[in-house]
Simulated scan of single mutants.
Amino acid sequence: EDERFFVEDLSRRLLDFLGSRTLFPHELLALADTAERDGGLEQGAADRFLELATSAFALSPDPVDRGWYAELERVSSVAADIGGVGSTHINHLTPRVLDIDELYRRMGAHGIEMIDQIQGPPRWDGPDILLRQTSFRALAEPRLFREGDGRVVQGDLRVRFGEVEARGVAPTPAGRRLYDRLLVEADNRSRNRPDLPREDVLRAVWEEHLPRTDVDMARSDLAYYTFAVRADRPDGAPPGDLVTLLDDGWVDVTPVVYEDFLPRSAAGIFASNLSGESSADASRTSAPRDRDWLSERIGRPVVDPDELYAHQRDASLRAVAAALGLERIALPG
C-alpha cells in the first residue's frame, strides 16, 4: 500500500498473492484460541501445538517463483523475503549478551562473517542506553526455484541471519530527545571528518554530553530507574525530593532495561544483510502507519513503553516513600 515502493499494478498483485496464502493451518489457530481461552493446553494438545507452530515457520521446500521473487527484489529484498514466497519463516533470532564487543571480536576470530560494525550507541565508560546490535551476515541457503519455462532448478537465498543485542537503560522522553540530538551531532562530525571511525566520533559526542554515572542520569531525569532505600542511609529526617535523596545517599538506583525497538540500528542490521538497494519514488505518497493502526490490525492495544517504564519507577518511589515515612517524593524538574 506504500506508493513510494509499489505501483498500483504491483500492489494489487502482491495483495492478491498475500491473500491467497495460508500461513497457519486451521488446527494451529484453533489450538491457539483454546490456549488463550483456557489459560493453557493439555499435554497432548500442547505437543501438537508446538509441532504445528514450528512447522509453520520452517523454510518451505516448495519452489520459489523466480520471476515473481526477482520483481519484488527490485523493489526491496525485504519485500521479496516477505511477499515472494508462499510461506513464512523466522528471519532472525536475537539473543541478549552481556559484552557485545567481545562477542563481535570472537565470532570474527572464528571466521564468521559479521556486518561492518555494531549498530547503536558506542561503547564508553558511562551508562549504556537503549541497545546495541550486531549480526553475522545472512547465509546462502539452498532453495528450489521455478523458472519461467516451468523448470525447477537448485539455487540459494540469503534470508536468515543471527543477530545479538546488548540492552541498556531506558531513556525518558528528555533522554530520548538528547539521544536524537547526539546522533545528529555525530552525523555532522562524521561528514566533516570522514577519516575518523564512526565509533570514535560517537564516543567523543557521548563523553561531551552524557552524565558518566547512573546516579547522575537519574538526577538529570534522562533515564528510568527503580529506587530502593539503602541500608547505610543517613540518620535524621529524609528529604522529600529525589535529587537530594540521591545526593545524600538515601537510595540506590537500578536501571530499567530498555525493551523496545531502535529503528535506526535495526535498519543498519537489515541494510547490511540485504542483497541490493531498495527502489522508491519519493514523489509518491507513503502509507500512514501509527500505533492506532497497529492496534486495530492486531486487535489489541499497543501500550506506550514510556508508561511501562514510568510505572516501574513510580512503584519503586512509592515503596521508598512508605519506608521513609514520606507522603511523596518529588521528581527532578
Rank of each mutant, 00 (worst) to 15 (best):
R318G: 03
R297N: 14
S278L: 10
D304Y: 08
L308H: 04
L294N: 05
D290W: 15
D290I: 08
L317W: 00
A322P: 00
A310F: 05
G325A: 06
P301Q: 07
A287I: 10
S278K: 05
G299R: 03
L326S: 01
L317E: 00
A322K: 11
D292Q: 11
D306Q: 03
L326Y: 01
L294M: 11
A280H: 04
A321E: 03
R297S: 11
D290G: 10
S279Q: 12
H311G: 08
S295F: 09
R300H: 11
Q312W: 05
V320L: 03
V303A: 14
A322E: 12
R318H: 11
E307C: 07
R291H: 06
W293S: 08
D290C: 04
V320Y: 00
D314W: 03
D304R: 08
A287K: 12
R284D: 08
A282M: 10
D281M: 07
Y309W: 04
A322L: 06
E296T: 13
R291L: 09
L294P: 02
A321V: 04
H311A: 15
R313Y: 06
D314S: 13
R313D: 00
L324R: 02
S316E: 05
L326F: 03
R284Q: 13
D290P: 00
D304E: 15
A322Y: 13
D314R: 02
Q312S: 06
D314E: 08
D304Q: 15
R318W: 02
V320F: 01
L324I: 11
E307S: 10
R313M: 07
S295H: 12
P301H: 10
S316Q: 06
D306F: 07
A319Q: 12
A287R: 12
D281Y: 08
A282R: 12
D306G: 02
S278P: 02
D281E: 12
A322D: 10
R284V: 15
V302F: 09
I298Q: 10
D314Y: 03
H311I: 03
S278F: 05
R297V: 05
A323C: 06
S278E: 12
L326Q: 01
S316T: 02
R313Q: 09
T285V: 15
S316I: 02
R318K: 11
R289H: 11
R291I: 04
A319Y: 01
R297H: 13
A321H: 05
A282G: 11
V303I: 14
W293Y: 15
Q312K: 06
S279I: 11
R297F: 14
R289W: 09
R284K: 14
S283A: 09
E307M: 10
L294F: 13
A315I: 08
P301I: 09
H311F: 14
I298E: 12
D306N: 10
A282C: 10
L294Q: 08
D304H: 13
R284W: 07
E296Q: 13
Y309N: 01
S283Y: 08
R313P: 00
S286F: 06
